[in-house]
């Protein structure tokens, strides 16, 4: 599969740059951590309230920090017009898209890995009662976010007001994804865990990811070509 190999090449390039500067990773993680601290002061901290609010807190943090990282990751491709160079390469444009989506997904996952334990630590949110399904649902959510996010961040690359337009475009489209993520997390930490609901929403997320992955693959080229 040469498409996957080329996608891996693009993703590896992004990770290499990120590992060298660590700019996106540090700032995103800092921002997500900050959000958790703000939550701790903004919301009641008793056990019942936290149990009700923690899933939403987690997914809002992922959405906000993820959008910042997404915008910055594509800004990097704009600096020396390298996005143009990538799209000009004689590889399927699908490979460029997948490469970017993979590297974004890894960054957002890293952020989730920072803010989930912080929610547990600062707020006592019982997020780790079922770690396996939680990891799965975060993974599915992050994949959907990165896929749709990469398409629109790439098309907005040359638009002056891209920073405000990115959330304007993404959030309405991603509401089902974030709601599904929140619902799953909610079902997981309720006592006892409602695995019927968990399974429903995990299927929902899986189908959502699959449909939007296909749609993104199908539209990416015609959307990035001016």
């Amino acid at each position: 599969m040469s498409v996957l190999r080329q996608a891996a090449r693009v993703a590896w390039k992004d990770l290499r740059i990120e590992l060298r500067s660590r700019e996106i990773l540090y700032t995103m993680a800092f921002f997500a951590g900050l959000l958790v601290v703000v939550y701790a002061f903004a919301f009641p901290r008793d056990e019942r309230a936290v149990r009700g609010a923690a899933p939403g807190m987690l997914w809002v943090a992922i959405a906000f920090a993820g959008t910042i990282g997404l915008g910055r990751a594509f800004d990097r491709e704009r600096e020396n017009d390298t996005m143009r160079a990538l799209l000009l390469a004689p590889v399927p444009r699908l490979a460029v898209f997948l490469g970017k989506a993979i590297s974004i997904a890894l960054l957002v996952l890293a952020v989730a890995a920072v803010c989930t334990p912080l929610l547990v630590l600062f707020l006592g949110a019982p997020l780790f009662t079922h770690p396996g399904p939680l990891v799965l649902v975060i993974l599915l959510g992050v994949i959907g976010f990165s896929v749709v996010g990469s398409v629109f961040a790439a098309t907005l690359l040359k638009v002056r007001s891209r920073d405000v337009l990115l959330p304007v475009i993404l959030y309405p489209l991603l509401i089902p994804l974030f709601v599904a993520g929140t619902k799953t997390t909610m079902a997981l930490i309720s006592t006892p865990a409602d695995f019927h609901a968990v399974w429903y929403w995990i299927q929902f997320l899986g189908i959502y990811d699959a449909v939007f992955l296909v749609l993104s693959v199908w539209t990416f080229e015609s959307l990035v070509i001016e």
Binding site: K13, R16, I17, R20, S21, R76, E79, N80, D81, T82, R84, A85, L88
Partner: peptide
């Protein structure tokens, strides 16, 4: 196609 532009098309961190 080869492209040479005002922008370098190269990554600053590499």
């Amino acid at each position: 196609i080869g492209m040479l532009a005002h922008a370098s098309l190269c990554y600053g961190e590499l």
